[in-house]
């Protein structure tokens, strides 16, 4: 699995607000990288531009040698980039299995019929929802909806996975399971761009981090070093950590 994500000079304005202001970084193939920053620093906006939900005002996003910057989300998904949403977005009229089946049917490769059903069951098992494909998504707990959403993202068979605070809201034992899942994905060769506030998860998963503040990258590099950098502590971790 090859696939390098290279972001250069990315910009996005919302009216008078510059949400992302010249962001550049790269995700190497097979790397789990953390994208950190205080609330409103522009992390989700970067994710949205990579996945095609928003169009960048300037800059470029290249993945696997392909320019994604002007592509629609469905094309980007077919190039091997999948995402979860910060606020879970289950499709309520579809069953749990159908939510996942959708991505298999329209993802990077096309699966349908018997074969797809088996693949769906595999993915559900992988995220811990084995045997629950027939349930309505509305009846799932919040955590299980997050699991379903991960399965749906994985079902488009991405090379790069964008996780927007996917671990947020989990209790300590669920968090451990979540971290193991992401680590397992990395073991399979997948690159992951992880937006996360939970330091425990970042330390456990990311060898490198990029930290944003007010739309700009203020630090990047080895996680341990970045998390100790004074500008990061003052911008992001707040006074009580200083």
């Amino acid at each position: 699995m090859n696939g390098r994500l290279e972001i250069t000079g990315l910009k996005k304005r919302f009216g008078g607000l510059t949400a992302v202001n010249g962001v550049s970084f790269a995700v190497e193939p097979g790397e789990v990288i953390g994208l950190l920053g205080p609330n409103g620093s522009g992390k989700t906006t970067v994710m949205n531009m990579v996945s095609g939900a928003l169009r960048a005002d300037a800059g470029s996003i290249r993945f696997d040698g392909v320019e994604l910057t002007r592509l629609k989300p469905n094309k980007i998904a077919k190039h091997g980039v999948a995402r979860t949403f910060q606020l879970v977005r289950p499709l309520p009229t579809l069953s749990v299995a159908e939510n996942v089946l959708l991505s298999f049917a329209f993802g990077r490769k096309r699966h349908w019929g018997r074969e797809a059903q088996m693949l769906v069951e595999e993915k559900l098992e992988f995220v811990g929802l084995g045997g629950r494909g027939g349930e309505e998504v509305g009846n799932l707990t919040y955590i299980d909806q997050k699991r379903m959403e991960l399965a749906r993202a994985l079902a488009s068979e991405p090379k790069l996975l964008l996780l927007d605070e996917w671990l947020a809201g989990l209790n300590p034992s669920e968090l451990r399971i979540g971290i193991d899942l992401v680590r397992h994905l990395q073991g399979l060769g997948m690159s992951v761009l992880l937006v996360e506030h939970i330091m425990e998860a970042v330390r456990a998963l990311c060898s490198r981090c990029v930290v944003m503040s007010a739309g700009e990258v203020i630090a990047s590099g080895e996680s341990e070093a970045v998390l100790k950098a004074p500008q990061v502590i003052s911008a992001y971790l707040g006074d009580d950590h200083a």
Binding site: K72, A77, L91, P92, T93, L94, S103, G107, R152
Partner: peptide, 20 residues
Amino acid sequence: LALKAIGDDETVAEHAGINV
């Protein structure tokens, strides 16, 4: 399946790879 997904949430449908 894609049409039902569109009825639920067009953004999610697009990100699943559907030409909405």
